[in-house]
Design a protein around this nucleic acid. Structure first.
Lengths: 182, 182
DNA sequence: CATGATTGCGCAATCT
DNA sequence: GAGATTGCGCAATCAT
């Protein structure tokens, strides 16, 4: 059955949520309404959803959980029967819990920062590469031009050579025009 | 209801139950009479953060709210708590609210997906550019080589020409040494 | 087994 | 005013 539950949560589309909530509410109350302390909602609001802040001292808070399934899609086929994962429910009041949460929050923050940083770096890398690319492209253009000029030159000379074995002086003129271009 | 509860709980795994319970608790309390508790925050941060938790997969969750509702109570340092923001505090029960939340959840999901996609694209772009870069670099190498060859060829010819034209020899030697290299 | 790092998710405040 | 973004906390999971 647990599985079922999990499954549902996975699919969870919006609507389901509500439903669940209600259901759970029922349970809770049944279970122990005694222990929770809660929070009122606001005055005027009739609300029903509470909050939890944490606290060690006074209240308890509550949190939901419904097992989700794997992220990627796969989903787990619900473990056979592993309900006994932790015998202790880990009170949300406990210092232990609070401490862990807080540490996790830090870790999360850190991780996200890192991630963000990385993304930015990647973006920067793109620009870098783009620049480099332009540079290279320009260089290629230049080289190409140079090459073309040289080739022309070469051809001309070859020509001359072939044509007149003995160029009195004509050839020189060509020689002068080489590099330049832009 | 109770029955249901019992039944279900049995079926459910331990943890789940717990979670549900908690969650529901929230609701319940709110629903029934909520009282709140808390706010103790922790030391360093004054803020008072309330937190809202939410329910995970399923969607339930609770949220905080600290409204000073009370007549007397209130004083918390909570931030601006402005309940008057909108005449209607927007109950979390309201359909209206739920609907909005849901829409927002969708939007969030969408946005995140998009963001992730973008990041991936950027990464891909990097690879693309890197490849392009290599290509260009290779081309440059090639062109450079070609150019060098051609230059050499050219020089050689020039040499020959010079030689042939004027076999005298003395002056020619100087001419040969020039460009070359890169 | 515990702990930090990641990741998906919902809430709420803002931005557009 | 509605969707898009963003910061934040929770919890599950991964990786050590």
């Amino acid at each position: 059955m647990v599985n079922v539950h999990a499954k549902i949560s996975c699919q969870l589309s919006v609507e389901t949520i509500d439903h669940l909530a209600l259901v759970s509410a029922c349970f809770v109350s049944a279970r122990e309404s005694a222990q929770m302390s809660k929070i009122a909602q606001q005055s005027s609001t009739p609300g029903i959803r509470v909050i939890h802040t944490q606290a060690h001292a006074s209240g308890l808070q509550q949190v939901p959980q419904l097992v989700p399934a794997g992220p990627g899609g796969g989903g787990k086929a619900v473990p056979p029967s592993k309900q006994s994962k932790k015998s202790s429910p880990m009170d949300r009041n406990s210092d232990e819990y609070r401490q862990r949460r807080e540490r996790n929050n830090m870790a999360v923050k850190k991780s996200r920062l890192k991630s963000k940083q990385k993304a930015q770096d990647t973006l920067q890398r793109v620009n870098q590469l783009k620049e480099e690319n332009e540079r290279l492209e320009a260089k290629i253009k230049l080289l190409t031009k140079e090459l073309s000029v040289l080739k022309d030159l070469f051809l001309e000379h070859a020509h001359n050579l072939a044509d007149n074995v003995q160029p009195t002086s004509t050839e020189n003129t060509t020689a002068t025009s080489d590099s330049a271009g832009q």
